[in-house]
């Protein structure tokens, strides 16, 4: 069941688009903001609210990177594995991160704190290697810097 807050937020957005289908990505993002991820149940709830089928919702949900169809940790680390970062040896930094967290790409730490996801180029290539934790960018990463960053999130 969607919360009243979620419903309100979704309905508030509806006015922006001439067709309700256009609200689906927005609705999914709103629900994900509240719940961290989109479960099968959330797919059905959004479908019901939009008067669409679960398939019509999931065809969208399953096609986007940033809609999580599996549970994620409290913080999502988007680790850039793209060309500029790769050249700047992001591999080594990532290996350190993965070892520290004991969670590989796509996995969540045991304590549910972090999920590490490989990401498309984050558009901060002159600070490579970079990663994004929740809304925050971190650049010029080194193993030491990673250690300091990880302590800032609970």
């Amino acid at each position: 069941m969607l919360s009243d807050k979620e419903r309100e937020e979704i309905e508030a957005e509806m006015a922006r688009y001439p067709h309700k289908r256009a609200m689906v990505p927005e609705a999914l993002r709103i629900v994900q903001t509240h719940r961290g991820w989109i479960s099968d149940e959330s797919v059905r709830d959004v479908a019901e609210l939009m008067g669409m089928s679960a398939e019509e919702i999931d065809t969208i949900a399953s096609s986007y990177n940033m809609i999580f169809r599996r549970p994620v940790g409290r913080h999502v680390i988007l680790f850039c594995d793209n060309v500029s970062c790769w050249i700047m040896r992001s591999d080594a930094v990532r290996d350190h991160l993965v070892k520290r967290l004991a969670a590989g790409p796509g996995e969540t730490t045991k304590d549910g704190r972090y999920t590490v996801l490989p990401s498309a180029c984050l558009g901060d290539c002159h600070h490579a290697p970079v990663m994004m934790v929740d809304d925050e960018m971190h650049g010029n990463l080194t193993p030491e810097k990673i250690d300091r960053i990880l302590e800032r999130y609970t």
């Binding site: 688009y17 990505p25 986007y64 990177n65 498309a120």
Partner: peptide, 18 residues
């Protein structure tokens, strides 16, 4: 919601349409 194809102008339009 995140896809490189959303930058391709016609993919973008489809994405905007949901």
């Amino acid at each position: 919601n995140g896809r490189y194809m959303c930058g391709e102008e016609t993919g973008l339009m489809n994405a905007l349409e949901g």
